[in-house]
């Protein structure tokens, strides 16, 4: 691959990862914690109503996991394209 092709392919894959990860980010917080809270509140997780749990606990746990998954994916991508130092 020529240099511009390589960087463009890298950027495309990066954007694909971002789209997937940010969709999850949106679904757990704005989806489960806000828009569909009342629906999810019909179910429970231990002593929590499910929607309430997502809003005050679950979404935060998912956020942490998302960033570490991103770190792992990007390190792998950097290696694939030889951008790792």
């Amino acid at each position: 691959m020529t240099k511009p092709d390589k960087s463009e392919a890298y950027w495309r894959e990066n954007k694909k990862y971002l789209a997937i990860l940010l969709s999850i980010w949106f679904v757990v917080s704005f989806g489960c914690g806000i828009l569909f809270k009342d629906l999810l509140n019909r179910y429970s997780l231990g002593g929590f109503k499910l929607g309430f749990w997502f809003a005050q606990q679950g979404s935060i746990y998912v956020f942490v996991v998302l960033i570490f998954v991103y770190v792992w994916l990007m390190n792998r991508l950097d290696k694939k394209y030889g951008y790792n130092e």
Binding site: L21, L22, S59, I60, I67
Partner: peptide, 20 residues
């Protein structure tokens, strides 16, 4: 429940920060 805005808002911002 209304207090959730701070919990999600002040942590979810880090996902944007880290990714974007």
């Amino acid at each position: 429940y209304d207090g959730s805005v701070y919990l999600m808002g002040w942590t979810g911002g880090y996902v944007l920060l880290a990714l974007l």
